[in-house]
Amino acid sequence: MDTKEPTTLEDITEVIRQLTSHYGLWMAESVHQLGLEAALDAEKEAGDKFFKILSGKLTRALGISPQSVLDSADQDTVEKLGMALRSAWLAADGVWFQAIEHQADMTTAKRVNDTCWSRFSPLEARRAKDILELPKNGGLEGLKAALKVRMYAHLNRWEITDETENSFVFRMTDCRVQSARKRKGLPDYPCKSGGITEYTGFSREIDSRIKCV
């Protein structure tokens, strides 16, 4: 007799939790063993293959392709889904920071945070280059285009100002993290070191000649 319990939402969530954790651990250890550049190349190969495998498995399980599901939904629902996933990404970043802060202290949490961004930002830039089909060195125009497809581009309010032939200023005008802290009566999070790490890694991946200050 089959005594297996029906699959629940919690079961599906647990699968996603372990899937993303395992994928991330592979990426982290690849950076440790091979270096960031080689690890990004490996992620490109593995990620492209994994997307096709996952899409095929979901199609067989649901009897319809994920793309067909999105095509049949109204655009507002699709936009809300995208926003829900992006904001969940940001929430995951936040709860990890808080967990490390509670386990250790703010300094340790910031160190872990900065290390994560030093690896994720180049990955995010690589994905932007693939999506936008940017050349190896896309210049400032390539950087501006890539910034528009970042996760944060859909979550925070931002602007590009003071443009010259060789530079521009990128400014966050409304950051979800800082706004949430203000609502809770907390001081601003000291994000400068993390921000420089994040945007330096992103910019250099778009074009190695670009400097972020």
Score class of each variant (00 low, 15 high):
157 R>W: 05
86 R>G: 04
161 T>W: 00
124 E>I: 00
92 A>Q: 13
183 R>Q: 14
205 E>C: 08
110 K>I: 00
48 D>S: 09
193 S>M: 03
141 E>Q: 13
93 D>T: 01
90 L>T: 11
90 L>G: 09
64 I>Y: 07
134 L>K: 06
97 F>S: 03
43 E>L: 03
114 D>G: 02
78 V>H: 05
30 S>W: 05
53 I>Q: 06
106 M>A: 12
184 K>R: 10
147 L>C: 04
213 V>R: 15
206 I>R: 13
31 V>A: 11
140 L>S: 02
159 E>H: 01
180 A>T: 07
206 I>P: 15
51 F>H: 10
213 V>K: 13
115 T>R: 07
137 N>G: 02
118 S>G: 12
87 S>A: 12
102 H>M: 09
184 K>W: 08
191 C>K: 12
171 R>F: 01
178 Q>E: 15
152 Y>M: 10
190 P>I: 06
203 S>A: 15
75 Q>V: 12
149 V>P: 05
56 G>T: 06
200 T>S: 15
39 A>M: 03
173 T>C: 07
173 T>W: 04
33 Q>A: 12
106 M>L: 14
36 L>I: 05
79 E>Y: 11
127 R>N: 00
4 K>W: 01
2 D>C: 06
80 K>F: 01
213 V>S: 15
97 F>N: 03
162 D>W: 04
137 N>Y: 03
144 K>L: 07
50 F>Q: 04
88 A>E: 08
116 C>D: 04
104 A>H: 14
140 L>M: 10
89 W>D: 14
154 H>M: 08
91 A>F: 14
141 E>V: 00
146 A>W: 07
205 E>D: 07
148 K>W: 03
184 K>P: 00
164 T>W: 02
14 E>R: 06
57 K>Y: 09
21 S>E: 13
144 K>V: 02
64 I>Q: 11
14 E>H: 12
156 N>Q: 05
5 E>P: 00
184 K>F: 09
185 G>P: 00
190 P>M: 04
34 L>Y: 07
125 A>E: 02
99 A>C: 00
129 K>R: 13
186 L>G: 02
186 L>Y: 06
156 N>V: 09
116 C>V: 07
212 C>Y: 12
109 A>L: 01
140 L>K: 10
204 R>Q: 15
195 G>I: 02
208 S>F: 06
103 Q>E: 15
101 E>H: 14
62 L>D: 07
90 L>I: 09
209 R>A: 15
48 D>W: 04
191 C>G: 04
1 M>L: 08
72 S>M: 08
78 V>I: 15
106 M>Q: 11
53 I>Y: 10
133 E>S: 14
97 F>K: 10
174 D>A: 09
13 T>L: 15
165 E>M: 01
209 R>W: 06
101 E>K: 15
95 V>M: 11
68 S>H: 12
28 A>D: 14
160 I>Q: 00
212 C>R: 13
5 E>G: 07
14 E>K: 11
46 A>N: 02
138 G>R: 01
54 L>A: 08
